[in-house]
Amino acid sequence: MIRAVVADDEPLVRAGVRAVLTTDADIEIVAEADDGRQAIDLVQRHRPQVAILDIRMPDTDGLTAAAEIRRTVPGTGVLMLTTFGEDDYILRALSGGASGFVLKSGPPEELIAAVKAVAAQAAYLSPRVAARVVAHLTSTRAGIDLQAARQRVATLTDRERQVLALLGRGLSNRQIARELSLVEGTVKAHVSAVLAGLGAPNRAAAAVVAHQAGLGTPSTPH
């Protein structure tokens, strides 16, 4: 059973998230919060596998809450709820350790897939979110990030590039192991090498690099 905490300052959004997730027998919402500070407290109390956070909340926002949760409860993955036009927030959340991003306007099945991916310690980027982040990086920095990503990817071994491509698709270590016929411990070592080689703080950031370099399109894990 995947245990989750949901935080959003809009009751209607929380109700919608709850309605979607409770249709899946493998997911249980153990607590709800209407601000980031309360979300931090609830995560520290319940120790869920996933914290689902709105990016913008009063008092303590989702970005601050995500960073504090990752610092104090590293076993909890953070999934951010976002809307179009919040690209800068998404980039900051990536640096803060968020593992996934979904649009509030996205299809219900995407939210369920994202929760399951983050619970499995994989990264999940809504394809539309990933595309906007890449477009934002390219347009604001004249393509420098795309070029740098390709250069960093070129320094990886063939096997590491294969692993990066699968990270870009949102696969967990176990799923990558199945795809490449490797043991999970070997995949974990490759993932660590990929993150170090790219200078990426987490799997979600590596997934963006994979997308920038044309290696993998984030998608629903299988």
Rank of each mutant, 00 (worst) to 15 (best):
G62M: 12
G62N: 10
G62F: 10
G62A: 10
L63W: 14
T64D: 11
T64R: 15
T64C: 11
A65Q: 03
A66H: 02
A67R: 14
E68D: 00
E68S: 06
E68P: 00
E68M: 02
I69C: 00
I69H: 01
I69N: 02
R71I: 03
R71D: 12
R71W: 10
R71V: 05
R71K: 13
T72A: 11
T72Q: 13
V73A: 09
V73Q: 01
V73C: 05
V73E: 01
P74F: 01
P74T: 01
G75C: 02
G75I: 05
G75W: 04
T76L: 07
T76W: 01
G77E: 09
G77T: 07
G77Y: 07
V78N: 08
V78A: 07
V78Q: 08
V78S: 10
V78M: 10
V78R: 10
L79V: 07
L79R: 07
L79S: 06
M80S: 04
M80F: 08
M80R: 04
L81P: 07
L81V: 09
T82Q: 08
T83G: 09
T83A: 15
T83E: 13
F84T: 11
F84D: 10
G85W: 09
G85E: 10
G85R: 08
E86C: 10
D87Q: 15
D87A: 15
D88N: 12
D88L: 12
D88M: 14
Y89L: 15
Y89P: 13
Y89F: 09
I90G: 13
I90A: 15
I90V: 15
I90N: 12
I90T: 12
I90C: 15
L91I: 04
L91M: 09
L91C: 10
L91F: 02
R92S: 12
A93V: 03
A93N: 05
A93C: 07
L94S: 05
L94I: 03
L94G: 02
L94R: 08
S95K: 15
S95R: 15
S95W: 09
S95T: 12
G97L: 01
A98L: 14
S99Y: 13
S99W: 13
S99E: 14
S99R: 14
G100H: 05
F101H: 05
F101Q: 04
F101M: 06
V102P: 00
V102F: 01
L103A: 07
L103Q: 06
L103K: 05
K104E: 03
S105W: 00
S105F: 00
S105M: 00
S105N: 01
G106P: 05
G106A: 14
G106N: 06
G106D: 02
P107H: 09
P108L: 00
P108C: 01
P108N: 00
E109L: 09
E109M: 11
E109V: 05
E109D: 14
E109R: 12
E110C: 11
E110I: 13
E110K: 13
L111W: 00
L111N: 03
L111H: 01
L111V: 00
V115H: 07
V115W: 05
K116L: 03
K116N: 03
A117C: 08
V118F: 11
V118N: 10
V118A: 06
V118P: 06
A119E: 13
A120F: 06
Q121S: 11
A122N: 05
